[in-house]
Simulated assay, not measured.
Amino acid sequence: MGILEGRVAVITGAGRGIGREHALLFAREGARVVVNDVGGANDGSGADAGPAQQVVDEIRAAGGQAVANAGSVVSWADAAAAVDQAVDEFGRLDILVNNAGILRDAFIAGMDEDQWDAVLAVHLKGHAGMLHHAAAYWKKQTKAGEPVDAAVVNTASASGTFMPNAGQANYGAAKAGIAALTLVAADELDRYGVRVNAIAPIARTRLTLATPGMGALFAQEVPAGEFDAFDPANISPVVAHLASQKCSLTGKVFAVQGGAISELAGWHDVSTIEADGPWELDDLAARLG
């Protein structure tokens, strides 16, 4: 029996890349999966129900249970519909994996408003909307006296945590916000029996292949039989564990790449200066730098 046997999961951005690997592994481990993907291009333009349905077909062909959802995580109405679909189709919701994302890279001086808004909308608002509606469902279950043992796994990024990348002010800001959202949500939702963690994955996807200065690294061929450290399938076992009832962790952010998992810590004091009264400008120049 798989570690997710009997669990019901909504996975966003699950039509391709890392999200697809999540959906396939979750199904193999016994979960029933709502495969969400709007099916757009790297920059979020367009829509195609095909990718989500293809993953569903693959899961069903292997004997698993899944349904497709082509809603946009940018829309809170679509987020609510995805949660409702899980409950309507499979009777419950136990797991939310927020994975959907886009790129519209540009240096700050040349970035336009649409580039900023679109990336923040899909990543940060998309996480918040799905999280809101899932949390509301679990809160209602708790208030009704029904036991809840649920898990959320958000998707941050190295770009927004430990490895800022030039040209990704919008993406990095959104991903840093997701890391902070994870910590707040973990604190809030513990009372409802919900654990919330995040990963910052490094893997070969449509987005990383299109990332300035990094695409060539991810595109390198791996000789047959050797371990492919950038295979997106390497990320999914960590997510499956975080989503399982065997895991007790909450409020954690993990960098995941190949065979390495690193726990990340946020902003913290590295040095302190103090004064006995109001700050003097000359004193700040001398002591702060």
Score class of each variant (00 low, 15 high):
L284N: 03
L189S: 13
M111G: 09
A79H: 01
K252S: 13
I261K: 07
A286V: 00
P232G: 08
V38N: 04
V122R: 01
G251Q: 06
G50R: 11
D114G: 07
G259C: 06
P51G: 04
L217V: 14
G13N: 02
A136T: 15
T182R: 11
L120K: 00
V8D: 10
N197D: 15
G39M: 08
W138V: 12
P164M: 04
S236C: 00
V34T: 05
Q54M: 00
R7K: 15
Q245A: 15
A86L: 07
A81R: 15
H241D: 12
G6W: 06
A77K: 12
N170P: 05
F90L: 10
G160F: 02
V270I: 12
E263R: 13
T161Q: 06
D190Y: 00
V153A: 08
N42H: 02
A216H: 05
V33K: 03
K143H: 08
G30K: 07
L25G: 06
V239I: 12
L103Q: 14
V194Q: 14
G6S: 13
L264C: 11
M130P: 03
W279D: 11
Q168A: 11
E188I: 07
A100R: 02
I273P: 02
M130Q: 14
T161W: 01
N98W: 01
E113G: 03
Q245T: 14
L264I: 09
I59W: 07
I199T: 09
D283Y: 00
E89F: 00
T182V: 13
T182W: 13
N170V: 03
V33S: 02
V73M: 01
T205Y: 04
I199N: 03
Q85G: 12
I11R: 07
V97H: 07
K252V: 13
T142H: 11
E274G: 09
Q54D: 11
G193A: 11
K125N: 13
V97Q: 04
A275D: 09
L103P: 03
N36M: 05
A135S: 15
S262I: 13
R60G: 01
K125H: 11
D48E: 04
N154E: 12
P201T: 00
L96P: 09
V10T: 05
L93N: 04
T12L: 04
G259P: 00
A52Q: 01
V34A: 06
R104D: 08
D276L: 00
A128Y: 15
G277V: 08
P164E: 09
I11T: 06
A81H: 11
A203S: 09
A229K: 13
I102M: 06
A200M: 06
P278W: 13
A121V: 05
G71N: 02
W279P: 12
A82P: 03
Y192M: 12
L217H: 10
A61Q: 10
H22K: 08
A52S: 08
L209D: 04
G172T: 07
N98F: 04
A174E: 01
I11A: 08
P278A: 14
D228H: 05
G46S: 08
A14G: 10
S159A: 15
V34S: 02
N165E: 10
A186E: 10
M111K: 03
G193V: 08
D43S: 11
Q115Y: 05
S271P: 00
T182N: 13
P164V: 01
N69W: 03
I11E: 08
L4C: 11
Y171P: 03
A70C: 12
A134Q: 09
G44E: 06
A240H: 09
V74M: 10
D37S: 05
E221Q: 13
V74Q: 13
W279E: 05
